[in-house]
Simulated assay, not measured.
Amino acid sequence: MATGETGFADVTYDLISVQYHALKAGHDYGQYVRDAKNAGLDDLASFFEQVMEEDSERAKRCHEFLKELMTSDDDAGPAVD
């Protein structure tokens, strides 16, 4: 498995990146839900809640993939020279 400049396998870095961005976006979407509700736009609030739920599920899937990589592939962790 290729190892990038981070010292981690590229796929591990990629999963961590997707997980981070999904969790960060989920945090931001909470504000979007509040903004829509405060504006009386319940349909829009529901949309933001759906998007937030999808990102939460995406982050969970990344977590599961990372667990699988860590238990099945010694190359998934930090590179050792």
Rank of each mutant, 00 (worst) to 15 (best):
A2M: 10
A2E: 06
A2P: 13
T6P: 08
G7A: 02
F8W: 01
F8P: 13
D10T: 06
D10W: 10
V11K: 12
T12E: 04
I16L: 15
V18D: 02
Q19A: 04
H21T: 02
H21V: 04
A22M: 08
L23Q: 06
A25C: 13
D28H: 06
Y29P: 06
G30S: 07
A36K: 04
K37E: 08
K37G: 00
K37H: 02
N38G: 08
A39M: 09
G40H: 00
D42K: 14
A45Q: 04
A45D: 01
S46H: 10
F47A: 11
E49G: 07
E49Y: 04
Q50H: 07
Q50R: 13
M52D: 08
E53T: 00
E53I: 01
R58A: 07
A59C: 06
C62G: 00
C62E: 05
H63G: 00
E64Y: 11
E64V: 08
E64F: 14
F65V: 04
L66S: 03
K67G: 03
K67A: 04
E68A: 11
L69P: 15
L69G: 12
T71G: 01
S72W: 08
S72K: 12
S72Q: 05
D73R: 14
D74A: 15
D74H: 14
D75Y: 07
